[in-house]
Amino acid sequence: MQGTYKTQTTNTMRLYLTSYNLANCSYCTRDGKTVYKVSCSSSGLGEITATIWRSLSKLEPTPEEVLWAEKHFGDDAIPHPSVPYTNEEPIESYRKSLESQDDELLSWAGPPPTVDDYKRCSSKSEAKQGLTNVAEIEMHSISSTVIRHLGNEWKASEFFSKAGWGWYGSDRIFKGPDDNEYRWKMGPAGAELFLVDTDPKEERGKAHVPLLVARFSNAELNGDKLPAFLEIFPAGEDMADWILITFIYVEMMRKPTYNRYLT
């Protein structure tokens, strides 16, 4: 990829694709645990919808005392014999931190894992954890693409603005949930996302170096194609949903033969 960017190399997250079809595969951690899954479907009328799923928190068995309390609810609730009675229900947070996967040991011995390895392990992960629908990208052959996320809806023509031009299409700029502007720069092997705003800490007189937020890597080693991955840097850890949604959109627009994403 061309360009000079500032990067934050600590605590980056790599989401490995379980297929070379980026709009019809799972995105999993280095040890094969699914974080996102994307699937495409067609209405047969020139409309293709990419649905994005996110893995649920690990499901744990409900404690016996909680089941007891739910069974004996009301003003005369009966406390479970083994625990003190309280009418205060603890609140647990399931916020998942996007920490570095590079420090984790691979689950496979020997050669680096292949796409099939990731596919097999991610399938087991999805069966254990479950998935929830978080977004849809509804692409039309004539009208504007529609993006949906957690009950909100935007037209792509209003959500994105174009900038520049190159062999691989115009860059796409959008406003993130933090009200900052981000720019997907199109490249020969994929795209890179960086923060548009200038860093106020930079010294005057120096050329501005954009902050790299995420990038897609699709490389080969000794002629063999390696599993592709989407790398999210710390600057983007709080907007992982939007990074994946916009990444899927710009890549599908970069190669507009949508039908190949259905298989």
Rank of each mutant, 00 (worst) to 15 (best):
R14Q: 09
S122E: 05
L195Y: 01
A69R: 11
T51N: 02
D117P: 05
A219T: 08
K37M: 08
G187D: 15
H140Y: 11
H208T: 13
F160E: 06
Y85A: 07
A23C: 12
V209W: 03
L244W: 02
K128P: 00
K33V: 14
K124Y: 03
P256C: 04
Y27T: 01
T86D: 02
E192Q: 04
K201R: 06
N87T: 02
F194E: 02
I245F: 01
V66A: 07
N87M: 10
D238E: 15
R254G: 10
K185G: 13
A189M: 12
P177T: 13
M186L: 05
I147W: 06
A109I: 09
Y94D: 14
D199H: 02
K155C: 05
G236R: 09
S170D: 10
P234E: 10
E60M: 10
T86F: 00
S39Y: 07
S143H: 08
V83R: 12
T257A: 09
D117E: 09
D31I: 03
E65D: 14
V146K: 11
K155T: 12
P63D: 12
I248F: 01
E251Y: 00
A235K: 10
M239G: 06
I52D: 08
D179A: 09
E181C: 09
H80F: 06
K119L: 07
T246P: 07
K162R: 05
A219K: 14
N222G: 05
W68V: 02
W165Q: 13
L195T: 01
T29R: 09
G169K: 13
I91D: 09
Y182W: 02
T7G: 08
Y85K: 11
L15K: 07
L17W: 00
Y85T: 05
V35H: 09
E47S: 03
E99H: 12
H72Y: 12
H140T: 09
N152A: 08
A191G: 10
K206N: 15
W154I: 11
E47L: 09
S170C: 03
I232S: 11
W184F: 08
F160H: 02
E88A: 07
P234Q: 14
P113A: 02
M13K: 15
G187C: 06
A69F: 03
N133F: 03
K201T: 01
E192F: 03
G44L: 01
T257K: 12
L106V: 04
D103K: 15
K162V: 07
S26N: 09
V35D: 15
W184E: 11
S217Y: 01
N218I: 00
E92T: 02
I91V: 03
N133P: 05
R30P: 00
F194M: 05
L105P: 10
I173V: 15
D103Y: 09
E138V: 01
E202H: 05
E202W: 05
Q129F: 08
P81A: 10
R54L: 04
T114G: 06
D76M: 14
K71M: 06
T49N: 10
M1P: 11
A240L: 03
E136K: 14
N180T: 01
D102E: 12
G3Y: 00
C25Q: 08
L131D: 07
G46T: 05
L98W: 13
S125A: 05
L193P: 03
L211A: 07
K37I: 00
Y182G: 04
